[in-house]
């Protein structure tokens, strides 16, 4: 199965923080995405994570946690 671009890129970011405690890693990933991703990309990511079946091993658990953080906060990045 072809990995959707947003999932691939988010997984790549998550891989950089995998050595950190999970909550901290998710925060770093969410912050990076806030700062550098366009709005529709964030929306696509959230939709794809939401649509993924539970236990989908194609999405890094850090990404799933980061998506939850992104979903929780209001739209708009911080510098």
């Amino acid at each position: 199965m072809v990995e959707p671009p947003q999932i691939r890129m988010a997984n790549d970011i998550a891989a950089q923080f995998r050595h950190r405690p999970p909550a901290e890693a998710a925060g770093e990933v969410a912050e990076h995405i806030r700062l550098f991703w366009e709005e529709r990309m964030r929306a696509d990511l959230l939709a794809q994570v939401a649509a993924a079946p539970e236990g989908d091993d194609g999405i890094d658990p850090i990404v799933i946690d980061a998506a939850a953080l992104l979903r929780a906060d209001a739209p708009g990045p911080t510098a």
Binding site: P5, L35, F36, E38, E39, R40, G76, P77
Partner: peptide
């Protein structure tokens, strides 16, 4: 606009998804 825009590879992906 206070939101980041699309980067080149993102533009290509978005062109293919029609947005």
């Amino acid at each position: 606009l206070d939101e980041p825009g699309l980067r080149i590879p993102n533009m290509f992906d978005a062109a293919l998804d029609g947005s």
